[in-house]
């Protein structure tokens, strides 16, 4: 699972790089526009460690943001699963609010909260929260009739049992959604850093952009991709372990 994630990323990354180099050599572009492999290697040597620390900085914020989003999405998903007016209200509100692009709100967040940790965290959490919420709401609002019937008809159904049944039956879906939301959280944090923050890999990419240094950007992308692949692979692995443990307890 973990290895598959990594080699899938490596294939895509090096395929993209090959296309870029193909364009460079086909159009005879200078190293200033697209650096050659030797220059890329030198850039990697000089910047990889610093960028890796930046990626870890960004990722730590993305993970905290993702955890917050998961907690909130599960809470709202549980409340919104009901067929009462409150449940319907939560669902409608969630669907409507998510239609608004969070990135468009980022400048307001930076103006109000400054360009530090909190702004990055808030934007990361908001960007991965809504897709998570919609998935969790969808899962929690869908009755598993052939299992729930007995508990309903005999008056044994409690909200905890309802949530447990629906979560158990959709564990694979939930794992996929959580692993997928890691990309969103990371993207959210990078976007936030790119717009206005003063730390993280998004900030480093912004500096590289000002320097028109594609080599640095490509190294940053490589480190972001490989770190994210490892993280997602670990999440999927953890999901599989949880599922296995739950099923064989």
């Amino acid at each position: 699972m973990l290895l598959r994630r990594i080699y899938q990323f490596l294939i895509i990354y090096f395929l993209g790089l090959a296309i870029l180099l193909g364009v460079k050599y086909a159009l005879r572009l200078s190293n200033y526009v697209i650096p050659d492999p030797l220059l890329l290697g030198l850039t990697f040597q000089s910047e990889a460690l610093r960028y890796f620390k930046d990626v870890l900085d960004t990722m730590s914020i993305a993970i905290i943001g993702q955890v917050l989003s998961i907690c909130l999405a599960v809470l709202i998903g549980i409340l919104g699963r009901q067929t009462t007016w409150f449940g319907s209200f939560v669902k409608v509100a969630a669907y409507n609010v998510q239609a608004y692009p969070i990135v468009a709100l980022a400048p307001i967040i930076f103006i109000l909260l400054g360009d530090g940790f909190l702004s990055r965290l808030l934007i990361a959490a908001m960007i991965c929260y809504f897709p998570l919420l919609l998935s969790v709401l969808g899962i929690m609002a869908e009755p598993i009739g052939d299992i729930e019937h007995f508990y309903r008809i005999t008056g044994r159904m409690r909200w905890q049992l309802e949530v447990k049944i629906r979560a158990f039956e959709n564990l694979s879906k939930l794992t996929t959604v959580v692993a997928g939301s890691a990309t969103l959280a990371m993207a959210g944090t990078i976007v936030a850093e790119f717009i206005a923050a003063n730390a993280g890999i998004g900030y480093s990419i912004r500096i590289a952009l000002y320097q028109s240094d594609l080599g640095k950007i490509l190294i940053a992308l490589f480190l972001i991709g490989i770190s994210l692949s490892v993280y997602q692979g670990l999440l999927e692995w953890a999901g599989a372990i949880i599922r296995k443990t739950w099923e064989s307890r």
Binding site: D146, I147, H149, F150, I165, F168, W246, R249
Partner: peptide, 8 residues
């Protein structure tokens, strides 16, 4: 076609 939960 009823089912029992699979966790136990």
């Amino acid at each position: 076609t009823e089912r029992l939960p699979g966790w136990a």
